[in-house]
Amino acid sequence: MSNEPMTTKADDAIITVRNLSKYFDDFEALRDITLDVKRSEVLCLIGPSGSGKSTLLRCLNFLEQYDGGEVHLDGELIGWKDISHNPRKPLSSEALRKQRQHIGMVFQHFHLWPHMSALDNVAEALMSVRKLTKKEAREKAMTALTKVHLEDKAQNYPANLSGGQQQRVAIARAIAMEPRVMLFDEPTSALDPELVGEVLSVMKDLAAEGMTMVVVTHEMGFAAHVADRVAFLDSGRLVTCVPPQEMFGREPDDARVRSFLQTYRERNVV
């Protein structure tokens, strides 16, 4: 059956992506992507705008319903109940909810809930999903906020936080659920330059603790220094997935990668 673990012994892969494809109507946004993410690995996704990075990330937690192929988390098929039939049947929203609890996600624009304090943003799912009491949830939320160095901003509403602080609350909201993997979609792209560092530093701490992370980013410095591997997407295809030394260290073989990185070289980023 389709729900059984992959038989291929991908050595300690936590996420396996096999022949993934995704269409928006007739437009092919992802084609035949095959990729593993290993436990405790930091995988960065880079590539030109519109190449399908966000779409790929969003397929991993089924915010986008992928059309072909499979995504597994710890051997469990994500999103679909049954892929042997056409059309595929999605999981019940209840089952999907269970899967998503293990997958943290951080968005470019934070998407905090503006009518709740930072603390309540983090505590909400601890109460309604983890079923902790209000007191327990707030204590746990406080621990998460402390991890992102925002314990003294716990009572602030998002409107009274800087962009960098809001993004750190969003990270705290995700890690408080103790997910098995964290997905980041351009977490620093909406930030003023002077606020990028504080968010990247929190992400580095997470990586150092062994969190498995998939990070869509234009921060080549982060990709070069923190990532274990860097994947390059172009026009919905996975062009290459290699350690950062290979991606950034020497002249890339692929012309698309070369011209993409060239724009960063010109700005002395890499």
Binding site: L63, S93, R97, R100, I103, W113, P114, S128, V129, A174
Partner: peptide, 27 residues
């Protein structure tokens, strides 16, 4: 209500009913 807020709620596993009462209605 911005769609991203609802996606963020789904990502932490909030049930749809809770999303309605806690995220959508108050705002």
């Amino acid at each position: 209500i911005p769609k991203g807020q609802i996606e963020a709620a789904r990502c932490v596993g909030l049930p749809e009913s809770r999303i309605l009462w806690r995220i959508i209605l108050p705002q």
